[in-house]
Amino acid sequence: MAYSSVTIQMRIKDFSEGLAWYEILFNRKPDFVPHEGFAEWELVPGSWFQLAEGEPGGGPMRMGVRSVEKERGRLMTELDLEIEPIQRRDGVPASWCTFEDPEGNKIGLFEDHQDQHPVIQVVEDYFVEWSKGYASKRSEGIRAFFSKSFTGYWAKAGLESIEPYGHDYGLDDVLRQIDRGEKQFHLTSLVERGGGEVLLTGRETNMIQGIAYSAQCLLVWRLEDDGWKLLREHIELER
């Protein structure tokens, strides 16, 4: 079984105090807060540190799999393990289970259900087109993902007000200003809502001449007659 990602969990009694401590340690707010008493940071792509309220201690280490049900069954058979039933919680887009190694160390499996939504592949293709656009200095591939009703907002520290931009904003001019650019997006949450819309949050990273410029993003995608289209984006630079 090839594992797709890893999570490591630490538990603390005073969650508010501990959260403040880890925010200073990692020099940023959590990437994902699925519920009270729990926060997550993606320290490197695909690897998450989880802070949970509870008795102090470390673990479990959980490994991401395509199917937690199939991998749980394999391990129960091949390692003769007793593994708890698969766990789920409202508002958390994952399922998981936990077991122990022969020395009692806690290990787990998890399945990320966000990856199963059809918009995920569209979003990945969209950010690939951005990287292609940086190289070609042409915006057609990027703009093809925009809804005709697209509206965007971009901001950074110190701005008192921001102006929206629309479907026909000067994207070619933006691309011409950037050499050796690459854009990536790491998803932290996905919420379906009415009107065929999906709300995504995550971190966008632009690598420009080898320097990373990260931003917190809120993206709204809508299923239209010609497929999934980007309806709105709100981008806040972290610098």
Rank of each mutant, 00 (worst) to 15 (best):
K132L: 12
F127A: 06
S136I: 03
V174D: 11
G202S: 03
Q116M: 11
F185L: 08
I8P: 08
I8E: 05
G64K: 00
E204N: 07
G59H: 04
G141E: 03
R176A: 14
G152W: 00
I235G: 00
V44I: 14
G59K: 06
P30N: 06
I178Y: 10
S214P: 12
H35P: 03
L171V: 06
V33A: 04
C217V: 14
T205H: 08
H113W: 11
W130Q: 02
A52S: 13
K132S: 12
E42Q: 13
S149I: 01
G170S: 13
K106A: 10
I211A: 10
G152H: 03
I86K: 02
L19F: 05
F32K: 03
R62G: 05
L223C: 05
A2P: 15
G18R: 00
F15D: 04
A215I: 05
W221L: 09
D80R: 09
Q9T: 15
P85F: 09
S189T: 09
I162K: 01
R89S: 11
K148S: 13
Q50F: 10
I24K: 14
A2H: 14
D226V: 10
G202M: 01
L218E: 09
A215Y: 09
F49N: 00
A20N: 12
Q216C: 12
V174A: 11
L25S: 03
I178P: 02
M10P: 01
T151C: 10
E224W: 10
E163R: 03
S214W: 07
V33Y: 06
V174F: 15
S4R: 12
L230V: 02
A212C: 09
E82C: 02
S47F: 14
S5T: 08
T201C: 07
F26H: 03
D179S: 13
E40Y: 02
K13I: 06
R176Y: 08
I12V: 15
E236H: 13
F38D: 02
V68S: 06
Q216G: 12
I142Y: 01
P45S: 08
D125S: 15
T188W: 03
F38H: 13
R72H: 11
V92H: 05
G37D: 03
A157L: 14
S67Q: 06
D80I: 06
E111S: 01
A52P: 02
L109S: 01
R89Y: 14
G166Q: 08
R232W: 04
H35T: 09
G54R: 11
G194N: 09
E204Y: 08
E42N: 05
I83M: 10
N27F: 09
H35Q: 11
K137M: 03
K229C: 00
H117T: 02
L25N: 04
G91N: 05
W96P: 00
G46R: 05
I208K: 01
R66Q: 15
G227S: 04
W130R: 03
E238C: 12
R88C: 12
L231G: 00
T205C: 07
D179I: 03
R66D: 15
I208H: 02
E192P: 00
G158F: 09
G54C: 06
Q216Y: 13
K229M: 01
G104Y: 06
